[in-house]
């Protein structure tokens, strides 16, 4: 029973966040435009060489998703802080972790949509052919996004309420994301190269392990962080 209640609360929070986002639209559109801009800039940095662009595509893809996505994480608390709605939200009965789960789901949908745009654009810009093992690529995107969103939502709960939120969130988040990004980039690279060395599977398992560790750790500590 308790789990079903928490699940209902989490869904309600996610629905509320996504509705706010859907009605304003400005947030997602500008973040998506930024992600595409970053991809174009990566293209300039790499030069017109087709081979170099193709080799750098996995890195460019994940980094542009990261740089653009990081704006979404602070936003997900900022809307509530501006409206003075976070405290009332905390006054509702039930575990704090359902609030975290809800925000996590809303951010996941946001970043997953962003990833869809980023992937299509980078396929075109970096001359990448859709690999035969594209369902595996979707798995990498799924687990990579989960890792990104888990740590992002967790650290934004602190950074968005501190004095220097613009700089603090990337400073806290980016070094912590190194393992997730590394695994996601390597898996993507392996799949785009046709997975000759059969290493994509190992990277994906590693990514799943990281996701689980960070999900458990953040769910345990979120109660403390949001109350303080």
């Amino acid at each position: 029973m308790a789990f079903r209640d928490e699940w209902a609360r989490a869904r309600a929070v996610a629905w509320k966040d996504l509705t706010t986002e859907r009605r304003s639209k400005a947030g997602f559109n500008s973040v998506a435009a930024l992600a595409v801009t970053i991809l174009v800039l990566f293209g300039f940095a790499l030069g017109p060489d087709t081979e170099a662009a193709r080799a750098a595509a996995p890195g460019a893809l994940w980094l542009s998703a990261l740089f653009a996505g990081v704006l979404a994480f602070n936003r997900s608390y900022q809307v509530e802080l501006d409206g003075g709605a976070l405290e009332p939200l905390l006054l509702y009965p039930g575990a704090r972790r359902s609030l975290f789960a809800g925000k996590l789901m809303a951010n996941f949908v946001f970043v997953a949509l962003l990833m869809a745009i980023v992937i299509v654009v980078s396929l075109v810009l970096f001359h990448v052919a859709v690999p035969a093992a594209w369902p595996m690529l979707l798995l990498v995107v799924l687990f990579g996004t989960i890792g990104l969103v888990t740590l992002g939502t967790f650290y934004a709960a602190m950074a968005s309420r501190s004095r220097a939120r613009e700089v603090l969130l990337p400073l806290l988040l980016f070094p912590m994301l190194v393992p997730v990004l590394l695994a996601a980039m390597q898996a993507t690279k392996a799949i785009l190269d046709g997975d000759i060395m059969h290493e994509a599977g190992a990277w994906i398992s590693l990514l799943v392990a990281f996701d689980l560790i960070f999900l458990i750790a953040t769910f345990f500590t979120f109660d403390y962080v949001i109350e303080a």
């Binding site: 967790f154 650290y155 602190m158 806290l172 912590m176 190194v178 393992p179 590394l182 695994a183 390597q186 190992a202 990277w203 590693l206 990281f210 560790i213 960070f214 750790a217 953040t218 500590t221 403390y224 962080v225 109350e227 303080a228």
Partner: peptide, 27 residues
């Protein structure tokens, strides 16, 4: 607030040390 938040960041940071090492080692 500073105490609770930095404790959370400290715990997750310390937890991440072996994970970072492992992932870079594979890389």
């Amino acid at each position: 607030r500073r105490g609770v938040w930095s404790a959370a960041v400290g715990i997750l940071g310390a937890l991440n040390v072996p994970i970072v090492y492992m992932s870079v080692r594979w890389w």
